[in-house]
Write a protein that binds this DNA or RNA. Sequence first.
DNA 1: TTGAAAGCGCTACCAG
DNA 2: CTGGTAGCGCTTTCAA
Lengths: 344, 344
Amino acid sequence: MSTLREMAERLGVSIATVSRAMNDKPGVGSETRQRVLALAQELQYQPNLAARSLVTSRTNTILFIVHQRQFTEAEDPFYPFIMLGLEEALKVDGFHVMLLTLNDAQLAAGPTALRAFQEKRADALVLAGPDISSKFILSASALGLTTLLVDNQLQLSSFTSVQPQNEEGSQSSTNHLIEVHQHRHIALLRGPGGWASSDERAAGYLAAMGGANLDPILVEVDDTTIESGKDAAKQALEHHPQVTAFVTANDAMAIGAMRAARGMGRRTPEDIAVIGFDDISWASYADPPLTTVRIPTIEMGRLAGRLLLELLNGAVSVKSRVRVATQPIIRQSCGCNGHIEEKK
Amino acid sequence: MSTLREMAERLGVSIATVSRAMNDKPGVGSETRQRVLALAQELQYQPNLAARSLVTSRTNTILFIVHQRQFTEAEDPFYPFIMLGLEEALKVDGFHVMLLTLNDAQLAAGPTALRAFQEKRADALVLAGPDISSKFILSASALGLTTLLVDNQLQLSSFTSVQPQNEEGSQSSTNHLIEVHQHRHIALLRGPGGWASSDERAAGYLAAMGGANLDPILVEVDDTTIESGKDAAKQALEHHPQVTAFVTANDAMAIGAMRAARGMGRRTPEDIAVIGFDDISWASYADPPLTTVRIPTIEMGRLAGRLLLELLNGAVSVKSRVRVATQPIIRQSCGCNGHIEEKK
DNA sequence: TTGAAAGCGCTACCAG
DNA sequence: CTGGTAGCGCTTTCAA
């Protein structure tokens, strides 16, 4: 592996000059620069990043932190996509992504787990997922690293964050049911209160119902799985038999709801229309194919990456809360015939 | 951030002594060592890894390389689990995992993409997935980094590799169909030839059929998706109407096969029993719940991590090909009543 | 058991 | 425009 010194000797110039040439810094004659670059090319020179880090205090590495269970969550692997997008965006500037998963105990213990990263290990932190507590976020950022939140946000403090437009998404899907399919009795099968995404999606539904002067019907369950979707659908159908459509907190619940409804003799979409949220991979294979709201996960990751790069370059210093537009995916569970299938 | 020097000054000893004490090296009086450790504790001392890397040429980082599309593959996100297990195992020794995804072009271009990692960026490479070519593997390992293969293997060269017991897995599921459910006409719906996992799973099926003196029925399609599962099932049922059971290359195909069969008036498991492979997250939600063969993905990642650590520590130098046992998951699509549901 | 010092490869400052 | 050099924080010889 060649070094700056080696190149300097072969070229008969100083190490400093080679360094300047390699880093596109001013103060090198264009002819000299040419020769340096040519030799670097020939030698396949790669800078030793440890040495560079030692003097610059920058590592070109960012740490992606996520709850262990969430990372590969059974019914909806969301964060690997975020990480993929992040890595894509970061690598164009020569940055790398490290994965750090935290279990419940580590999350509770606070930033002890991060201590090892204080010292020259990462330039920034991406904290992903709603189940990272405010306390943890605050103490992590106190480490002095640039911090960005994905799918999480703190009300009080201001961090740069990237989140989906939950409210707009469910408002538009509710409107689709109202305007295109003329439903009047639409129930929201929602997840637990207190979780930002559940609350925001509920707000979108309420806005749409209010806008159309319809009475909202809310059914809240304490989880957002297929099973809880079944429960919610049963409750809704028993207490509100007039309901003809469901808006659900996510796709897993939508699938559960369709199954429960079918078990009660109600077919989708003829008797009960259903619209989910997320567009997980199996949504298009559901029976019938699920109409839903797509969260552009990879794109969210890319955006987070680009934001981080700007923050790190000092190009921007404002903390911004970015909302990424969701996309309606019209399939058949809403009553459409599915000809307006999405283009991937 | 405190440094060795700072500690040395406060303790009135030399930097070398502090370094030795911190690294558990001999040559330090036990009393001195105590004092050093106590101060380190108090100061929350963290070594500067860039500085350490510069002198030791070790980074405590391993690079997880996977094909971009594969990492979050729509129907079966396999590699995030591997990465999770890897990270879990590695972090106990203070190692970190970096993600590098490669697209088709980069894969074809050879190790250019890896050049940046030659220099003090990673101590080892984990190459995951069958679609990383031998050529790429060979040239990557020529970089001089310890290399480990997951879900891939080279026939000629010897690399340490971790793979599932594909052959044993499908042999046992085929046997289940033969012995427990008395099927005589079992078709294998297999994926493309040439892919090691497809071939191995086929071999397991053939072994079981041969062992029972039954005639194998092979249907090969060029993909392993729900759609190709449908195609394969249609072909099988048309050309071999006597077939009463399917063994499929993976769960996605199994689900497609059940749907196609149902479309042709054959119910699962009454008319056609089906057993898949992989145990993807949606297998238990299929209709009927899918009997399959589970690949212990997270455990494979952990194993890869432990192996790597041994290799790096020089504890072991032998290149070993490790096969991880799969686990039969009996649900209902095979004809069992599902009471023997797996314990997670 | 301990200390002094060289040096890993690089950036950045100061002279010229 | 160019060169010399200090020094980032650490590990590791070599002496004492």
